[in-house]
């Protein structure tokens, strides 16, 4: 029988701990495939966050660092400055990158640090049990916004791709989603490009991936995929926000 689909070399053959219906697995796959296809796995060093992807260091088949909460871009900066010829990436969620780690991501971007950042935005803190994230939508119910996120009380969500694309330093910023086959195909292109940019020494590349959290959203996996279409994409529009290779597109 011909093999039509198999595990990529860049993923370790171990069960992952993610909940059923969570899109982290897809995001991992896209990163691993990209490293594989670019042939850079052997010189890749990844940085895992604190949050749902905290164990990512067990899943990517390359050298890894586990960073403190939010600090992955600083850790990646340290690695890249020591190993400029290696491919260095961070994989961070919205609590990690958009809340506690805002200073680190903004300044890594401003420096045009030649790293690749994979930013998972599922509008909630997953690992700690569904608390409000900086990306939680207005009126969205979480365990720390039980009456819905009240913008008059705790402000509005952060739009990271829009924010970072305003910095002169950033090279490439794109937002994609992991909820449909078409969106996943686009996401793959974006992720691969973000790594290709680093291979070509272009500089700071970030891909924001709109993701699902059926467990903490209190939905079935299918409802969660639809919720991304109905609620997240309208608030967080998909597309290329910055590409210095092609001028600013949006």
């Amino acid at each position: 029988m011909a093999t039509v689909f198999k595990r990529t070399e860049m993923l370790v053959d171990v069960p992952q701990h993610y909940c059923p219906g969570c899109t982290h697995g897809i995001a991992h796959r896209l990163v691993a495939e990209s490293l594989d296809e670019l042939g850079v796995g052997g010189r890749s060093v990844g940085v895992a966050p604190v949050g749902c992807a905290v164990f990512a260091y067990n899943y990517f088949n390359c050298d890894m660092h586990e960073a403190a909460h939010g600090r992955a871009p600083a850790v990646a900066t340290g690695i890249k400055r020591v190993l400029p010829d290696n491919i260095v990436f961070t994989y961070q969620g919205d609590g990690d990158l958009a809340s506690i780690g805002t200073a680190e991501i903004v300044h890594a971007a401003a420096r045009n640090e030649n790293i690749t950042v994979i930013f998972i935005n599922n509008a909630i803190y997953g690992m700690t049990g569904g608390q409000m994230a900086p990306t939680t939508l207005p009126n969205q119910v979480t365990t720390t916004s039980p009456y819905g996120r009240d913008a008059s009380h705790c402000g509005m969500p952060l739009k990271i791709s829009e924010m970072l694309s305003t910095l002169d330093g950033t090279y490439y910023i794109e937002r994609a989603a992991l909820n449909t086959v078409k969106n996943i195909k686009n996401a793959k292109k974006a992720v691969k490009k973000a790594f290709q940019n680093q291979v070509e020494n272009k500089g700071f590349s970030l891909v924001e991936l709109l993701s699902t959290c059926p467990t903490n959203w209190g939905m079935t996996p299918i409802e969660a995929l639809k919720w991304v279409d109905d609620n997240m994409i309208p608030y967080y529009p998909l597309g290329v926000y910055k590409d210095r290779g092609e001028g600013e597109l949006k």
Partner: peptide, 17 residues
Amino acid sequence: AESEIAAINMVYGAAGA
């Protein structure tokens, strides 16, 4: 670095490398 926190985490990354 942008802060002492970032500086020590750059140290962590560089030391690990």
